[in-house]
Amino acid sequence: MLRINCPYCGEREHSEFTYGEDATRTTPDNDAPMEQWNTFVYERINPAGEHLEYWHHAFGCRAWLKVQRNTLTHDISWVGLPHENPQVQS
C-alpha cells in the first residue's frame, strides 16, 4: 500500500486519502476563451514517471495536499501543501 507523509499528520496509509486530480494544470483566467477552458478540463498529459497530483486527507485532517508520485513505480517522493513544489534535483 502507498504511504503518504501528510505534513500535518505524519505518514499515513493511502486508504486515509482520496485522490483528487492532476496538480500540474494551471487554471485559466475567468475570462479566458472557451477553447482554453476546454483544454484545461479535458486534456491530460498522463506521463510515465514522476507526476504531481492532489490528494485529500479525507479520513484525517482533511487537508488537500500535493503529492509527487511515480506513475511507473508508485513511489511517492515528495508531499507538500497545495502551493508548494518539490525542489528540482540538480
Binding site: 482520496t18 483528487g20 487554471t27 492532489y54 485529500h56 479525507a58 482533511r62 487537508a63 488537500w64 497545495p82
Partner: peptide, 10 residues
C-alpha cells in the same frame, strides 16, 4: 470535499 478543495487549491 469540493469546497475545501476550492479554498485550499483554487
Amino acid at each position: 470535499a469540493y469546497l475545501e478543495r476550492c479554498l485550499e487549491i483554487d
